[in-house]
């Protein structure tokens, strides 16, 4: 499965970009989600101190999350890093999982998702995110200021097209 067609064009630029602006945007979104969902990692329990890698198979990047910080780091694939558990899937699938719009077990059965490392930690993270009620268009719109309704509408459109393509 490849990046959904609506996201393909802007994301083609990602491999050419320096990491700093990517990390800035990703970090801003991460903080936004933490602000909107304060209890996001509560279900992790003792696994809160673990490091989790999220690797989109269609981007040359790895997102490393440390819930204990909380902290997000963006790396290029091939960079050295350590993680206790990790998941690999196309970007839109990872975003759909973040929102709980796809079932991780079903994606595992269909081989659209790979998991590595400590499965207890990974399972805890999956369950924590699944219970979060994250809604990316709604959460993104919060930083849209006066353009919030436009940001929301656009994000909803991108999401619905993306979900149609992965289902």
């Amino acid at each position: 499965m490849q990046i959904t067609s609506i996201l393909a064009l802007p994301l083609k630029a990602v491999p050419l970009m320096p990491l700093v602006p990517i990390e800035l945007v990703a970090g801003r979104l991460f903080k936004l989600l933490l602000l909107a969902h304060g209890d996001m990692f509560e279900r992790l329990g003792t696994y809160k101190s673990c490091r989790f890698s999220f690797a989109p198979t269609d981007l040359p990047l790895v997102f490393l999350i440390e819930p204990g910080g909380p902290h997000l780091t963006v790396l290029r694939k091939g960079d050295t890093f350590t993680a206790d558990a990790g998941v690999e899937a196309p970007l839109v699938t990872l975003l759909a999982l973040l929102e709980g719009r796809c079932d991780a077990d079903a994606l595992f059965f269909s081989r659209d998702l790979k998991v590595i490392g400590d499965m207890e930690a990974m399972l805890a993270m999956r369950n924590a995110l699944d219970d979060c009620d994250i809604d990316l268009p709604r959460d993104l719109a919060r930083i849209g200021g006066p353009a919030a309704p436009v940001v929301h509408r656009l994000a909803v459109e991108i999401r619905s097209r993306s979900l149609r393509e992965i289902r």
């Binding site: 709980g100 719009r101 796809c102 079932d103 077990d105 079903a106 999956r126």
Partner: peptide, 10 residues
């Protein structure tokens, strides 16, 4: 019970 909310809903 171990499945995600998307599975349950569907």
């Amino acid at each position: 019970r171990q499945r995600g909310k998307a599975y349950v809903a569907e």
